[in-house]
Write a protein that binds this DNA or RNA. Structure first.
Length: 833
DNA sequence: GCAAGGTC
């Protein structure tokens, strides 16, 4: 029996640190084993994994897509191998001498599987050590202490349920993805993927687009009258009772609408027929889970991806709780009063917190989902000051704080006033609403709480008609799903998880299935969904997940086995492949056609063939003729971003406009032929001598416009000399009389058509130097462990970029940078790889 | 290089 330490294993480093703090009474020491944090106190060690540290995959001999028939993957073996070598090695090292192991991964199915993976790694090196499992749903003193006082055993059945999912997802996903990619001859980066979650998500988007395409708009009319009482005006709308006796505002017949309007136009007054007052209670919202957080962040302009990334940063910095949760019920341990009082006296939140603390009773709201995974998202007692956060981070942090405030605030009260009046036989109605008790709206301004005014009137009263309007309208097609609606719908359908839904949407963008925001499906996406519907219905249906969920529950209850469930799934996939393989060519042709349609910009002016977007061997995009090599017509595209063909076309050339997608730097390039012609017409403006070849060959620097639409300061001897400096894409370039003494070049100013302030860019060489320094700085900041300030210090010490950091001698660099030791430098160097 | 699920 070893008398080594007791080893506690958690799912992530953050949890390891907090659990160690709780169990040790905050007397914990941190050390690094293989570059992994290990927390140690007394005879205990605590290590955090990084989710799954082993992955499932086929053996290497199945790696070649061409050599292996996709159908062979169905019965191929599935192996597990370490994916996080350093963590696995650290775990093994600690487990070897451990006297006891406690698995403390998250309290959900995936956590049980991650725990089992850790268990197996432990067993590899230590056959006898006892292994326990503890379960708690939030990392608080009471829950953690209690869990460790009552250890349980790993639930191998629950873990097996998770393993069945892993295998089924891999086999179906890989086999079908390879089949589609091979059939369409898409083997590079642009393979064609399908899977249990992305399939139905894509179908959701495609189905909505089909509805939009099939939509046939209908004309209708709406009539309005402005009424007035004692000089106070308000709007009313005409309505009638339809065949079913329901109130209707839309008039579907033009003649009817015209007739009603003629009557309305002629009336001078309307008589009040009924007045109804009602108060409505407006309950505060439930605590945030991931989906509702993403939705709220979406309403203030953040994409799902961005919202989650900011939340992640706020979580790691300790300002808010774990952002991936299904739970909408605060744990009992959370004392809202205590948390509120942390905000008391705060510059931004103090007043609101104090007003909430004055309430007679503080009773938080609760949603419908009570799960064991993590608590709902809420701020921790640790408060950042605005200078600790970027503007976006602060905005998201404020949202989280205010949502917490709202959940402990009182309900709001609205007074609704509904007035119906008669105008020469026509019914008019007006709905007013007034917020009589602001309640939670006072601390949570993200919901619409605008009022609409209708004065207090009484039955029988005469109201003046001051104006009338008739509006002709059309019924609208259903709206595309926005990102947050998509995530909500996925949650409702039961596909994906809190941690993956937003990634799935990103994946659809990356695969060329959707574009723009709200996402619109490409032709390729339609074809993939069509192929799925015809040959592999399950892979585009939420049924697959529903069935899998049932099977997993059966495994977890011990009523089914992992082998039984995966074997059955493999048989179903065999059947799918029978159909697919007999129609492989047809499927491939269909996909290829759509791929080409997605890339076609228009007709080639030289030969009448199709102009398509292509990628050069260097990886940049350009437009070329599909009849190449017979026709060599080309047009350049900007070097930043990924081209997207837009729906509208150029009046002159009939080519589709092109948009360049580059995240937040996305811009519309327009007609590529117009851009090229503009560049051909523009003469280069010489501004000075080329620093590279001026003395020797007389090269000059000039402001140039390229056919790709970009502008630069470049040498007139190009291509013999390729010296160049970048210029911004937008705005007009102006050469000022002011000049740079160091480089003897005029200073440049950028002006804009809109009301934006001009930008004094200055000397183009100086400007480029600054830009490069900034780029290198952010490159340095991308290295784990280096923040903005450290990056600045490193630059001051002569470390301009990442490669310089890697080559630096650790001791020398540590001497040159305040507060940094050689070990830290080595760590950065390791992280930089 | 394929999926989906953890986490960073």
């Amino acid at each position: 029996m070893s008398n080594g330490p007791e080893l506690i294993i958690t799912e992530k480093d953050n949890a390891a640190r907090r659990i160690a703090d709780i169990l040790s009474g905050e007397s914990v020491e941190a050390e690094r084993v293989n570059g992994v944090n290990v927390y140690k106190w007394g005879g205990k060690r605590c290590i955090g994994l990084s989710g799954h540290v082993v992955g499932v995959d086929f053996p290497p001999e199945y790696n070649d897509w061409r050599d292996v028939e996709p159908v062979e993957l169905i019965d191929a073996p599935v192996d597990k191998h370490p994916t996080q070598e350093n963590i696995v090695a650290a775990l093994r090292r600690l487990a070897r001498r451990a006297r006891r192991v406690v698995i403390a991964t998250d309290y959900d199915r995936e956590g049980e599987l991650i725990g089992k993976e850790a268990y197996e790694l432990v067993r590899d090196v230590n056959e006898d050590v006892p292994v326990d499992r503890v379960r708690f749903s939030s990392i608080t003193d009471r829950e953690v202490t209690e869990a460790f006082e009552n250890p349980d055993e790993l639930d191998f059945d629950l873990a097996a349920a998770g393993e069945a999912r892993q295998i089924i997802d891999l086999v179906w996903g890989a086999a079908l993805t390879r089949f589609l990619s091979l059939s369409a001859r898409q083997l590079g980066d642009d393979f064609i993927s399908v899977g249990r979650v992305q399939g139905p998500t894509l179908k959701l988007i495609v189905d909505r687009e089909r509805e939009i395409d099939a939509f046939d708009p209908e004309d209708y009319w709406e009539l309005f009258a402005d009424l007035e009482k004692d000089g106070e005006g308000f709007e009313s709308q005409y309505f009638y009772l339809d065949d079913d006796g329901n109130e209707a505002e839309r008039v579907w017949d033009g003649d009817d609408a015209e007739a009603a309007y003629e009557t309305l136009e002629d009336v001078a007054a309307a008589t009040v027929e009924s007045v109804r007052r009602r108060t409505r209670t407006d309950e505060p919202p439930a605590p945030f889970n991931t989906t509702q957080f993403i939705r709220a962040a979406g309403s203030i302009g953040y994409s799902a991806q961005r919202a989650m990334s900011i939340a992640e940063d706020l979580y790691t910095a300790g300002y808010m709780t774990y952002p991936r949760t299904d739970n909408t019920v605060y744990p009992e341990d959370l004392d809202p009063e205590e948390l509120l009082s942390e905000f008391s006296g705060h510059r931004t939140f103090g007043e609101d917190a104090d007003s909430l603390l004055e309430q007679e009773e503080i009773e938080p709201t609760a949603g419908d989902n009570e799960t064991t995974d993590h608590p709902p998202i809420h701020p921790t007692g640790e408060l950042p000051s605005p200078s600790d956060l970027s503007e976006d981070e602060w905005e998201v942090y404020e949202l989280v704080v205010r949502r917490f405030f709202a959940t402990v605030a009182e309900s709001a009260e609205w007074e609704h006033l509904r007035v119906v009046a008669d105008a020469d036989g026509l019914s008019l109605k007006a709905n007013g609403k007034r917020l009589v008790e602001a309640g939670y709206h006072a601390v949570y301004p993200y919901f619409n709480s605008s009022e609409s005014f209708v004065p207090a009137v009484e039955e029988g009263e005469e109201l003046a008609v001051t104006d009338t309007r008739i509006e002709d309208k059309q019924t609208q097609p259903p709206r595309r799903y926005g990102q947050s609606r998509l995530i909500e719908t996925m949650e409702k359908m039961g596909i994906g998880t809190k941690a993956t839904r937003h990634d799935v949407i990103q994946k659809l963008y990356d695969r060329g299935y959707i574009e723009s925001d709200p996402p619109k499906p490409t032709r390729l996406a339609r074809s993939v969904v069509e192929a799925g519907e015809e040959f592999a219905e399950l892979i585009v249906s939420e049924e697959m997940t529903a069935q899998l969920e049932q099977d997993m529950q059966a495994i977890a209850r011990g009523e089914a086995t992992l082998e039984g469930v995966t074997d059955e799934s493999r048989e179903i996939l065999e059947d799918v492949f029978e159909g697919l393989m007999s129609s492989g060519e047809e499927v491939g042709e269909h996909l290829q056609k759509s791929l080409k349609a997605d890339k076609t910009v228009g007709t080639c002016p030289d030969c009448g063939g199709d102009l398509v977007i292509r990628k050069s061997r260097r990886g940049s995009y350009f437009i070329g003729c599909d009849s190449y090599p017979d026709c060599t017509y080309t047009l350049p595209l900007p070097s930043t971003g990924k081209p997207l063909i837009m729906e509208d076309t150029c009046d002159e050339h009939e080519l589709h406009h092109v948009k360049m997608l580059a995240g937040r730097k996305t811009f519309v390039h327009g007609c590529p032929l117009c851009k090229a012609e503009e560049a051909d017409e523009q003469e280069d403006l010489v501004i000075g001598t080329c620093p590279e070849c001026g003395e020797e060959h007389g090269g000059e620097l000039a402001i140039k416009r390229l056919r790709s639409g970009s502008r630069l300061v470049g040498c007139t001897r190009y291509p013999d000399c390729d010296y160049s400096l970048p210029l911004p894409r937008r705005g007009d370039v102006e050469v000022t009389d002011d000049s740079c003494e160091e480089h003897d070049l005029p200073k440049i100013r950028i002006t804009y058509d809109d009301d934006r302030e001009p930008w004094d860019l200055g000397c183009p060489i100086c400007n480029y130097r600054e830009y490069q320094a900034q780029q290198n700085g952010s490159e340095l900041e991308a290295v784990k462990g280096i923040g903005e300030k450290t990056a600045q210090k490193l630059q001051d010490a002569g470390i301009g970029d990442v490669s310089a950091l890697k080559e630096a001698e650790p001791d020398a660099l540590a001497d040159a940078v305040d507060g940094v030791g050689p070990d830290t430098v080595r760590e950065w160097q390791a992280n930089a790889d």
